[in-house]
């Protein structure tokens, strides 16, 4: 496994920028952790059954279809906007991002 190449491609998927130095450091650390984690491969296949994804094996909660009109903030804006960057994060009441090609 070329850990450096994996780190680079995974970083890209995760939208993380790594310097070459970081690639090396992280790759070494990940390799060490993966070596440890690889003990999982030693669990006998015969003892493995259905995966457990969640500690609660219950049906999911269902909500009645009732709509609630969202609240405005004290300035009469959609209330979620208060968390956005107020200097460069909004255009009108829309979130502003770099141009999407």
């Amino acid at each position: 496994m070329d850990m450096n190449a994996i780190s680079r491609s995974v970083a890209k998927l995760a939208r993380l920028e790594l310097s070459e130095e970081e690639v090396t450091t992280f790759s070494d650390q990940l390799k060490q952790v993966l070596t440890y984690i690889d003990q999982l491969q030693s669990v006998p296949e015969s003892s493995l059954g259905a995966p457990l994804y969640h500690p609660l094996e219950l049906p999911t909660l269902l909500r009645e279809d009732q709509a609630k009109t969202p609240q405005l903030d004290s300035e009469g804006r959609p209330s979620m906007l208060s968390a956005a960057s107020q200097t460069d994060g909004l255009i009108g009441t829309a979130y502003k991002v770099p141009p999407i090609l």
């Binding site: 999982l40 491969q41 669990v43 003892s47 493995l48 259905a50 995966p51 457990l52 994804y53």
Partner: peptide
């Protein structure tokens, strides 16, 4: 997936 299987154990 393997981790979730062992989680069951």
């Amino acid at each position: 997936q393997k981790a979730c299987q062992v989680r069951r154990l």
